[in-house]
């Protein structure tokens, strides 16, 4: 069997991911998180008389708690394979990346394992977010005054 035939065979056997289905699932799960988030914010603002910013900050903490707990209990990975980007793009993904890295490297020690690898996955979000925001805010001050 030559290479071309082999490649053809592999393409035939490899299961095709249904992109349309993935997109719809991501849309509904992601949308659901936004919807539930808005419900939480409305409850916090009406029942607990919170300011706008205060309510959004609490929501952010709740979502991170949810992501961390789901990861620690071990069923976040199962959820991600089903819900795809619907759980990665919301802040749950950020929490998941930190908690899973911490759990995976715990056995290598508190400093060289857990400590050194804590931000292994979330580090890029922090790094590039901070770099972009730093220079953009300088630019923003220069332009908008």
């Amino acid at each position: 069997m030559n290479q071309d035939e082999y490649k053809k065979l592999v393409d035939e056997i490899t299961p095709k991911e249904n992109k349309l289905k993935n997109a719809i699932v991501a849309f509904f799960i992601g949308g659901l998180i936004g919807f539930v988030g808005q419900v939480v914010v409305t409850i916090l603002m009406t029942s607990f008389e919170m300011e706008n910013v205060e309510a959004y900050t609490w929501l952010c903490i709740f979502i991170i708690l949810f992501g961390s707990v789901c990861t620690a209990l071990g069923f976040f990975d199962n959820l991600v394979t089903k819900a795809k980007a619907g759980l990665i793009v919301p802040t749950t993904g950020f929490a998941h990346s930190i908690t899973s890295a911490a759990l995976d490297y715990k056995k290598e020690g508190m400093i060289t394992g857990l400590g050194a690898n804590f931000f292994k996955l979330a580090g890029s979000v922090l790094l590039y977010g901070i770099i972009a925001a730093f220079f953009l805010s300088i630019l923003g001050v220069m332009i908008y005054g």
Binding site: G30, Q38, Y56, L59, V89, T91, A133
Partner: peptide, 21 residues
């Protein structure tokens, strides 16, 4: 969109920029 814009990770970039200003 309220929380629709704040639950996604892009809100982190928004908060960083606003805090810089």
């Amino acid at each position: 969109a309220g929380a629709g814009a704040t639950v996604v990770i892009s809100n982190f970039g928004h908060l960083l920029y606003q805090a810089g200003i």
